[in-house]
């Protein structure tokens, strides 16, 4: 699945990022706790989260996450958007809540992080 496919599944809006269809998404990771993103998220995952502070972008940079989708209608503050632009990290936003977002992506074939070898 590429990021554009994921965007369509979640009917998400693009906040940062272009040519989403060129970005491969190998896995999904849903978490609101950054330590969990570091512990469970693997390189090449899409992060679904309800957190919007700039630390989320930093965490993705460290964990080599390919993109973030903010769930349940959360909009990131300006600092987060600026930081994402600096790091060329795509940001999406969907009104769909976390549970439903993970479920739909999984249903459309996106794997979880424990099903994929690093």
């Amino acid at each position: 699945m590429n990021l554009e496919d994921a965007r369509k599944v979640l009917d998400a809006e693009v906040i940062v990022g272009t040519n989403l269809e060129e970005i491969d998404v190998e896995m999904g990771c849903g978490a609101d706790l950054m330590s969990d993103v570091l512990a469970f998220g693997k390189k090449g995952s899409l992060l679904l989260t309800g957190l919007t502070n700039p630390q989320v972008v930093r965490t993705c940079e460290i964990a080599e996450i390919v993109g973030i989708c903010f769930v349940r209608g959360k909009r990131p503050p300006e600092e987060t958007i600026t930081m994402a632009r600096e790091h060329s990290l795509p940001l999406l936003a969907t009104r769909v809540p976390m549970f439903e977002s993970c479920g739909r992506l999984y249903y459309h074939g996106l794997k979880g992080c424990s099903e994929t070898k690093e």
């Binding site: 978490a31 549970f99 439903e100 993970c102 479920g103 999984y106």
Partner: peptide, 14 residues
């Protein structure tokens, strides 16, 4: 559950 949230949710969704 041992599964990460994403996968557990995916299976509940199924």
């Amino acid at each position: 559950s041992k599964l990460p949230a994403f996968e557990l949710i995916g299976r509940l969704y199924d």
